[in-house]
């Protein structure tokens, strides 16, 4: 499986796949100039991965997402949901700062959209 490694910038998150833990990490903030251009390769990678593998944890620590990134994240959730319905073992861990209720609220909204395991974990300061 090809690697996926996108470095973090001020307006785009780190996106990194760890093969040993079958974990896709997304860390940082997301308000790219063009969210669709940023997430298209991520979604393409995810599509190929989920066709070949039946296990993936997406580990997310994102403090802020602009509205078009939220839309892209929903596409990512949909791809995971589809794989889950076909029997794959997929899950999301969403880590949020205790002092940042907005990240928690966003996680809750995403959680309502899916049926696979979605853990919302508070990060201790």
């Amino acid at each position: 499986m090809e690697q996926l490694e996108i470095q973090q910038t001020a307006s785009t998150p780190l996106v990194s796949f760890d093969d040993s833990g079958k974990t896709l990490r997304i860390v940082g903030e997301s308000y790219p100039e063009n969210s669709f251009a940023f997430y298209t390769p991520v979604l393409a990678w995810l599509g190929r991965y989920l066709q070949q593998h039946a296990q993936l944890t997406v580990d997310i620590t994102v403090t802020y997402m602009n509205s078009s990134s939220i839309k892209c994240m929903l596409d990512l959730l949909d791809a995971l949901e589809e794989a889950f319905k076909k029997g794959s073992n997929v899950a999301i861990i969403w880590r949020h700062d205790l002092e940042n209720p907005r990240s928690f609220e966003l996680a809750e909204e995403f959680c309502e959209e899916v049926t696979f395991p979605f853990d919302i974990v508070a990060l201790s300061a």
Binding site: S35, F36, S67, S68, I70, K71, E109
Partner: peptide, 22 residues
């Protein structure tokens, strides 16, 4: 907001039409 999130984005769209709702 939820409906707009679920709406298909046109190929030439620059955003998801969610900005004002956000």
């Amino acid at each position: 907001y939820k409906e707009q999130m679920r709406r298909e984005v046109q190929p030439d769209a620059l955003g998801a039409g969610l900005g004002l709702l956000e």
